[in-house]
Design a protein around this nucleic acid. Structure first.
Length: 509
DNA sequence: AAAAAAT
């Protein structure tokens, strides 16, 4: 166990760390911080949740604290793949740089350039950016990158997935070769290796990967349904979400349009749900995420924008409404639960059309998720309501036993019952696709241990720090619209980034 | 089959 005090940080920085309540450094922090403080390049192989963000923010603050930026000449760049991730880095700066005179600005798309340009003109030490907006501003002549002393690349493999590598390469070339580079990636595909070979100088390689695939704090379940009918899938989803032990959760869909539909449907059925994906405007995305973090929103319906990296405190459940087409996305999705040693559950709704994607997922996770049978959910959406066998409540997929799919309450109530082995053994809905997985693996009795009293969203949630972050030099928004700093439910703030983005958030990596 | 990110 290494304390932050042993890492060579200055008293000012240590005070900022102490103010966050952290005392012990994570492995990646322990290894990366001394190397970065010494001015050397770092190649960090680390996932989200390892303390990565602080591992580069702290040395950055420390090394830049003494100097001062000139107009349009930033001294450091942090590149992140998504706007939300960039914002999280900014939150990290708000915490760790508060004892210094450092200034920084968030350069992301979806918000007006005015404030960003003004900050650049005034002179800002650190650019925290997504590649597109950074290059856009550069091309407009709003900055020079020849004064960059340190460049940080976060989640490089995800940037690769998103086609950002040419942009990253270009930004590298715009900065002086003698800069220090801190480069982070969860995996090292060849293209990323090539990049590090080209742009890092004798880097210290630090690996702090978490246990390879899926954490064993996550229990994975698989729910097979006999049809791809969206109505049936939504009915199954409601049955799962309605379970008593769902404190909060994320529902992942493969398409943005599906995210909207599912969120709307859930709301219609009385669930506290809201959508998030890349087509929603930035302020809306931020607000939804803030609500979800604070516990004001229970169910987040998301595209893969929320699969990785986002600093969402532990959720109790992840629901894969669609099976990911890419297996690694599945791993990232379910990694939103079971964090920090807590227990989490992940469910995957599988239709016959998903066999191919499912195979890839199963191969990657090298596990056989338990098959959960939804009692009392009718998947035959073509038939009229019929009587329900309340005594047993055990008929399953109702191929011939139709009930209306909108009888959510029935579905939910029934699904909370624990299927017995006898019941799971011959679920008719499964027979068709089970051969795709290991046929010899007997289905397990599912989720027995997980049923519990209903838990309110707000219970057992730590009180959020009330401390208002300091007004920064670059926080022109705050200067101009001070009233927004007080509120969290800001609507219609247009191009301004609202104050809730500035509140303290749990730090991770 | 998709999502993300500059507009």
């Amino acid at each position: 166990m290494t304390e932050f005090t042993q890492l060579g940080l200055s008293p000012t920085t240590l005070q900022a760390v102490a103010d966050t309540g952290y005392t012990t450094a994570t492995p990646i922090q322990e290894q990366a911080i001394p190397v970065a403080l010494a001015g050397r390049d770092v190649l960090g192989i680390a996932q989200t949740g390892t303390g990565k963000t602080a591992a580069f923010t702290l040395p950055l603050v420390e090394r830049l604290a003494s100097g001062r930026a000139r107009a349009r000449m930033p001294r450091a760049i942090v590149l992140a793949p998504t706007r939300e991730l960039a914002d999280q880095v900014a939150e990290s700066f708000a915490k760790y740089a508060k004892g210094t005179k450092l200034s920084w600005v968030l350069l992301i798309g979806g918000v007006s350039m005015g404030d960003q340009v003004a900050a650049l003109n005034k002179g800002v030490d650190v650019l925290i950016a997504t590649p597109g907006r950074l290059l856009d501003l550069f091309e407009r002549g709003k900055m020079l990158l020849t004064g960059v002393e340190i460049m940080v690349v976060d989640e490089a493999d995800r940037m690769l997935d998103m086609g950002f590598i040419p942009d990253i390469e270009r930004i590298f070339k715009l900065t002086p070769p003698r800069r220090q580079t801190l480069f982070f990636s969860a995996t090292m595909p060849p293209e990323i290796t090539r990049l590090t070979t080209a742009f890092l100088k004798d880097p210290t390689r630090i690996e702090a990967s978490r246990p390879a695939m899926t954490a064993d704090t996550i229990t994975q379940y698989l729910v097979r349904i006999p049809t791809s009918d969206p109505k049936a899938k939504r009915a199954a989803l409601r049955a799962l979400i309605g379970r008593a032990d769902v404190r909060n959760g994320i529902v992942f869909c493969n398409r943005k349009s599906e995210v909207d539909i599912v969120a709307k449907s859930l709301k219609k059925h009385g669930f506290d749900a809201a959508p998030i994906h890349g087509d929603l405007d930035q302020s809306h995305r931020m607000k939804t995420l803030a609500d979800f973090r604070s516990g004001a929103l229970k169910i987040l319906v998301a595209s893969d924008v929320a699969a990785r990296g986002l600093d969402i405190p532990d959720v109790s459940h992840v629901f894969n409404y669609d099976v990911s087409h890419h297996a690694d996305d599945y791993v990232h999705r379910i990694g939103r639960t079971g964090r920090a040693g807590r227990l989490g559950q992940a469910f995957m709704i599988v239709t016959p059309a998903d066999d191919k994607s499912l195979d890839k997922v199963l191969k990657l996770i090298k596990k056989e998720p338990e098959e959960l049978v939804l009692d009392g959910v009718d998947f035959d959406t073509t038939k009229k309501p019929a009587q329900r066998d309340d005594k047993g409540g055990r008929e399953r997929t109702g191929r011939g036993r139709a009930r209306s799919t909108d009888k959510t309450e029935q579905a939910v109530a029934a699904s909370a019952e624990i299927p017995t082995e006898a019941q799971t053994a011959e679920a008719p809905a499964r027979s068709r696709s089970r051969r795709k997985t290991k046929p010899e693996a007997a289905p397990q009795p599912a989720v027995e241990a997980t049923l519990s009293e209903p838990v309110s969203v707000d219970s057992d949630r730590p009180a959020r720090a009330e401390r208002e972050p300091q007004l920064r030099q670059s926080d022109r928004r705050g200067e101009r619209r001070p009233e927004e700093r007080e509120r969290t439910g800001v609507k219609g703030f247009g191009d301004d980034i609202p104050a809730f983005l500035r509140r303290p958030v749990i730090i991770h990596g």
